[in-house]
Design a protein around this nucleic acid. Structure first.
Lengths: 249, 249
DNA sequence: CGACAACTTGACGGGCGTCAACCGGAGTGG
DNA sequence: CCACTCCGGTTGACGCCCGTCAAGTTGTCG
């Protein structure tokens, strides 16, 4: 049985819907957009800093990250994405990409023409606002990441990353009782937290020794969710997930 | 002689115009929005994390910063704002503020009803897009800040902050031959770079000793702009200032 | 079973934080 | 006009968190 457009769009429209008020017609209009499905391997670049992409991607399955490089070549991951995320909605209005996007795992992507997304956003203001809002939540997350790498020590940084990832996995329906995939190497965790792989290794061990997490290769089992939040100083409001955090009318 | 609405809006509409295609009518419509002008002292909070502001602010004169706090009370500044910036456009779509905004200097603010801004954005798609685009440039800047605090050492972090500030001051017409105001204490510089005041002090001295900058109280004189950019690893493209970096149609 | 990537561990060093004292200018009040 | 205060800047001593380097070990996939 072949997946329908609605199936493929499901997680994404669900997420957009959570963020605001989309009518059935709006969702219908979104899923009607021509989409080319593409399967890619882990480590594939969707685009790189300096590119001018003509399509944006719905992440249908798998994980991806956005990152930037310093002039002397060290890498900083600035966000991690999972099923249902529309990556680089911002390219609707900014031509040149200021960062790169790369898959962390094998992934299924839905490629949609930026022009058509943009036309739709203009045609249906409520869809445009949903897109805009999605960008705003991204921006809020970047702010939290500035705080994370700027002002928290290594255990708190990693714990915070795990809390965010767990919370978002939960919302995306990718988590079961505190257990979720974390398909990142320790080197990638290091690039996401502004640390080194060696120190990430030691810090993860410490978190495990404290009875906060269990790690079985690429998946994380949060044993003590409250304890982890405490170490992280995690308050999830910056994710703007609940309706209470959103302006609806 | 009293300043007209167009005068007060000048720097802001200029900036929005740089970012896209606004017609004279659009600008007319923006400046026609009812605006309450307010003079405030340095250190005034425009709103705090958790607030649900009903107005957003055009910064007509002066400087401000956005910041977040960790649960144990340390502060991270996530952006700095100057004349012409519309602060917290994002509150058009996100009700609850996820950070605080505080003035760095005495400032003149134009307060505009969020509801009216939002109605205007819906009425005039090109205005809505200009607002959206402005938010996207903010987001791009946050990404660069994640990189800055995550992957650069102290001299590079501070140099980068200076490069960004200088570039934006220039665009806002606040700079004259490499010299611009930097109305921040060393403690605030520390909060913006994820360092401590003591280390900021030493690092500034080092940059001065290298002949890159001169500092006279609250203003910075960049002596060797290229040298500073080199230390910072600064490439300004993330600011999306030139039309080349923008999608126009 | 071999090759390669990812993870692990130890030793060592340095950049930056911490603590604490002191300086200097601006505002304030007597 | 000068003492007082306060805030911001400056300097030194010291220590720790985290980076660096390098050598294993484990896991994975042909």
């Amino acid at each position: 049985m072949k997946a329908t457009a609605a199936d493929l769009w499901g997680p994404a429209t669900q997420k957009l819907g959570r963020l605001g008020t989309l009518t059935a017609d709006d969702i219908q209009a979104i899923t009607a957009l021509p989409m080319k499905v593409r399967e890619v391997k882990a480590g594939t670049y969707l685009f790189r800093e300096g590119d001018e992409p003509s399509h944006c991607c719905v992440l249908i399955a798998g994980y991806a990250n956005r990152h930037k490089l310093t002039t002397d070549g060290s890498r900083q991951i600035v966000s991690i994405h999972m099923r249902g995320d529309i990556i680089d909605l911002q390219q609707l209005l900014l031509t040149t990409a200021d960062h790169s996007v790369q898959t962390l795992t094998a992934a299924t992507l839905g490629m949609i023409s930026i022009r058509q997304m943009k036309d739709l956003a203009r045609e249906r203001p409520s869809v445009g606002e949903a897109f805009w809002r999605d960008c705003l939540v991204d921006a809020s997350t970047f702010r939290e990441w500035v705080l994370n790498v700027g002002r928290r020590d290594a255990p708190a940084r990693i714990a915070h990353l795990l809390c965010e990832f767990g919370t978002r996995s939960e919302s995306a329906g990718l988590s079961r009782n505190g257990k979720f995939e974390l398909p990142m190497t320790q080197e990638q965790l290091a690039d996401a937290t502004g640390l080194t792989p060696v120190h990430v290794n030691r810090t993860l061990q410490r978190l495990r020794a404290q009875g906060l997490i269990e790690r079985t290769m690429r998946s994380i089992d949060v044993v003590d969710w409250d304890g982890l939040k405490l170490v992280a100083g995690f308050r999830g409001s910056y994710l703007h997930e609940s309706m209470g955090g959103l302006r609806n009318s």
